[in-house]
């Protein structure tokens, strides 16, 4: 199947109180997420990213439109667990998503819910912990670990469920630069192993690693394309109050001065390469 997730005219409204008007957090969004791709979603606070993410695995159900994960409609009760097993999710706060007071038991939580045989759970847990380099912490209590380590456990917990797609909702927002880099390299590795990645982030440097960037603004999709295409739209981005990665912005300025910088120069590495070879 070409697209693992298909979003058709998705509308989502939060309505708690009868008197108050409903808040439209996602407004008529249509997107397809290609199987095996790496998509980054960027946007300001409150632009509807998390709401969109929670609609992708049935944690929230559409107020209008439809979301399909593989062939299943997320509103179909009969397949909701297939949907959630296929599209796993890692949240922002590592503290509030760990269930057990022992690391390996926490990683086992998902597979246990799926009703998998104990022996296979054991294998999956050991493999998942090794994948995130946390093998030697498996008997530890999560509250004794650093934020980055806790987030790696949370990722292992999802990986152990063997999802085909993982949605990360600002997984690095609460981490220091070192923890951030660790999580990002794990995400890259998972993507290389064939898992479809949807990464919601505030950091442009993280987004440039993706092969597609979606910019959300005010509950709608503002821009959608490869990183090169998206960062070429400097004016639109600035109007939406979004910063551009330093390298892309410098390349842009050089271009204005008549220097022919290729469109794909958006990372510091590529920029350095270009500058060194420039004659």
């Amino acid at each position: 199947m070409k697209n693992i997730i298909r979003i058709e005219n998705l509308i989502f409204e939060y309505s708690h109180l009868e008197e108050e008007p409903a808040i439209r957090a996602v407004d008529n969004v249509s997107l397809n997420i290609e199987t095996g791709s790496f998509t980054a979603i960027i946007g300001k606070n409150g632009s509807g990213k998390s709401t969109l993410a929670k609609n992708l695995n049935g944690l929230l159900l559409p107020s209008g439109g439809t979301v399909y994960v593989k062939q299943w409609d997320t509103r179909d009760d009969a397949h909701i667990w297939d949907v959630r097993q296929t599209a796993g999710m890692v949240f922002q706060n590592p503290d509030n998503q760990l269930v057990s007071s022992i690391v390996e038991d926490d990683v086992a939580f998902g597979p246990e819910n799926l009703g998998i045989e104990p022996k296979e759970i054991r294998e999956r847990v050991d493999k998942a912990l090794a994948d995130v380099n946390m093998g030697k912490y498996k008997k530890k209590a999560p509250h004794l670990l650093s934020g980055g380590q806790k987030q790696r456990i949370a990722i292992a917990g999802v990986v152990a469920m063997k999802p085909e797609c993982i949605i990360f909702d600002e997984p690095t927002a609460m981490l220091d630069p070192k923890g951030r880099e660790e999580i990002m390299s794990i995400i890259d590795e998972l993507h290389r192993e064939g898992i479809t990645v949807v990464l919601i982030t505030h950091f442009m440097e993280e987004a440039v690693r993706a092969d597609r960037i979606i910019i959300m603004d005010d509950a709608k999709v503002l821009l959608d394309g490869t990183p090169e295409e998206v960062f070429a739209q400097e004016e639109t981005l600035r109007e939406a109050n979004l910063e551009i990665p330093m390298a892309a912005s410098l390349a842009h300025k050089l271009r204005k001065r008549g220097i022919k910088v290729p469109e794909d120069v958006i990372t510091v590495e590529r920029l350095v390469e270009f500058v060194c070879q420039y004659k």
Partner: peptide, 10 residues
């Protein structure tokens, strides 16, 4: 948050 994370993990 925890309830949501638990549901996401089936």
């Amino acid at each position: 948050d925890l309830a949501m994370a638990m549901e996401a993990r089936c």
